[in-house]
Every structure is written in structure tokens, then in C-alpha cells.
Amino acid sequence: MLVHPQFDPIALSLGPVQVHWYGLTYMAAFGLFLLLAARRVRQPWFEQAGWTRRDVEDLLFFGVVGVVLGGRLGYALFYKPGYYVMHPLEIFMVWRGGMSFHGGLLGVLAAMALYARRRERRFLEVTDLIAPCIPVGLACGRIGNFINGELWGRAADPSLPWAMVFPQSGSDIPRHPSQLYQFGLEGVLLFVLLWLYARKPRPIGQVSGAFLIGYGFFRFVAEYFREPDSFLGLLALNMSMGQWLCVPMIAAGVLLWTASRRRAG
């Protein structure tokens, strides 16, 4: 049975300036997005549509704003609405933690809609461009979760070779390292599948639909191994909040992918 090494969350201290591992994972995510999206715009169908490296940089700026605002507001709305109604100023205290992927996704979609409107591009053209680049950023985030020893998994059979005790949980119960499961599923595997799927031109909207389906499915599965939030527990049908948020995501992905295929046919 393994024990989480309890990494120091501060990677580097330079006088009064402290660099946190979680911040470094965000920087890695942004850097990988630039690298991958720059390769995407060199594909012939994007080049013909006039996409450039400068567009990628602008997309990153819009995306960062969207993911931070959406992630924080989504956490407040989906997970602790009562608390933040009573303490609204704490919504802006992002250093205290609390981000929602589903809220971040909505924030990014809103930011991409604004970008598309300003640049007079089709919204789904923009989301198709960025969709295969997102999973690597998610993978970076899950590594940050693991380093911080947060979002640990549910209790596991002690005989499981990779079962791990997370002292941060306040117990010596062996658990699934669910952060690493999510790193592998929502990050690495989803990236590989989407990148391969998007290597040739697809009808507009299909790559975006595939992302919604893929992320929703992998996150739904991973939630069976992740400890539900203590202040929520399991909800109806013994499903977590994360799973319930994945249901409309998968449904939207199926509808988008199907509608795109019909339009192309």
C-alpha cells in the first residue's frame, strides 16, 4: 500500500515570491495549448480559412479569462450556492481553491462565442479548432491535484497494488488515486482519440461534439472512483454532482455530432 508523499505545494521561493506547483501546471497547460493549436492552424483547411498563429494567441487570452471566471462561478453555483450567497465576496478569493471544470467549460464557450463574434467567424469553427488541444491542459490540472493531495479517491481494496493513503483526507484509509485516473482518461486518452479524429477535415461541429461526448463519458466513469464532495455526498441515483453535470454534456455532444453529420450528408 502506497502513501501520498505530501509534496510541498510551493515549488520555488524567490524572496517574498512563492511559485506554487499548481500555478506551474496551469502554465504548462497554456504552453501546450499554444503549441498544439499552432499545429492545428497549419492544417490545410484552417490555413485556407485564414487562421494564423496570432489567432491562437488571442484564443488563449480569451480562454484563460473564460476558464478562470467560469470555473470559479461554476463552483459557487453548482457546488456551494448557499454558502456563496451568504459570502459573495469570497467568490473572488480564488487562492482559497474551488474551481469547477463544467463551469470553466461554460466560461470558455462564452469567451469563444465573444471571440467568434468579434472576428466574424462561426462559433463551431472556433470550438472545433481548440477542442483537441484542451485535454492536455486537463491532464496538467490533474497532476496539480495529485501534487496537492486533493480530490482524492474513494476507499479501495488494500490489496490493490496502487491503492494509496492520502493523509490530507484525515484518515489512513487506502484510496484510489483518482486524480491519476482522470489524468489518464480525461487527459491522455481523450487527447489521443480527439487528435487522431481531427487529423482530417470533419463537418463543422463534429470535433466539438466528440469532445463533449468523450470528456463527459470519461469523467462520468472516473467519478465512480473519486470521493464525492463531503458537503454534497451522493445525489439522486447514487450519482455525484460531477456525474449529473456530465449527463447534459454527453447529451449535447450526441445532438451536436448527429446534427453535424446530417448537415454534411
Rank of each mutant, 00 (worst) to 15 (best):
Q48P: 00
A116F: 08
M93D: 15
R154W: 00
M86W: 06
L34H: 03
E150C: 11
H87S: 07
Y75D: 13
V19S: 02
I143Q: 02
A110P: 01
P174L: 10
I130M: 05
L237I: 14
V85P: 07
Y224I: 07
C246M: 12
I147L: 08
W195L: 06
V56N: 07
R262H: 12
Y215E: 09
A110R: 00
P135V: 02
Q6M: 03
W257F: 10
L189F: 11
Y215Q: 05
G137M: 05
D8S: 11
F78T: 12
G66Q: 04
G265Y: 00
Y181M: 05
L124T: 01
L69Y: 06
F183N: 06
F30E: 09
V108R: 03
G144F: 01
D229L: 09
R54M: 12
R263I: 00
R42W: 08
R262A: 08
M239Q: 14
G153N: 08
P177C: 02
F46K: 06
A156H: 04
E57Q: 03
R122N: 07
S208G: 05
V65I: 13
V67N: 04
H20Y: 11
M164I: 04
Y75K: 06
Q243T: 13
Y26W: 09
Q168Y: 01
W21G: 06
R142V: 11
F33I: 15
S178R: 00
M249C: 13
I173A: 14
A210P: 01
L160Q: 00
V3H: 08
M164P: 03
L73D: 08
